[in-house]
Amino acid sequence: MAAEVENEISVPINSDQDVVVARHKGRGLATELGFSASDSTLLATAISELARNIVSYAGRGEIVLRASHNSDRPGVTVVARDTGPGIASIEQALRDGYSTSGSLGLGLPGARRLVDEFEIVSKVGQGTTVTVRKWKG
């Protein structure tokens, strides 16, 4: 878990267009670190879901992308942060098919399946921070 910070890219998320920007930058960073095309796509898809959640539920927020290293193994850490309404039940939000927005309810649980590490901290009325990490395969 000893992840040391190398560089950091912050992508402000205010609209659906920013979702595309965030996943492009995430894919770019993963490719730079030597991820396979397949793993880069998995990461880009997870970023797309996390960024969309920001737009759908909080309206605005940011995605921070960071290169991480676990001994010699490179990885990408993604922090999706907003100061929106927060999640009342994280347990429910992580269940497949559960949604309060009329979506498929696969965003959060799906994103979790696409990455290696997943952590969510949310407080009602204060916002949500989801941190995910994917290591080079």
Partner: peptide
């Protein structure tokens, strides 16, 4: 649909 995209879709549960 590209192979990598298809793989991610299945992982996502789509």
């Amino acid at each position: 649909i590209q192979p990598d995209v298809a793989f991610a879709m299945v992982q996502l549960g789509l």
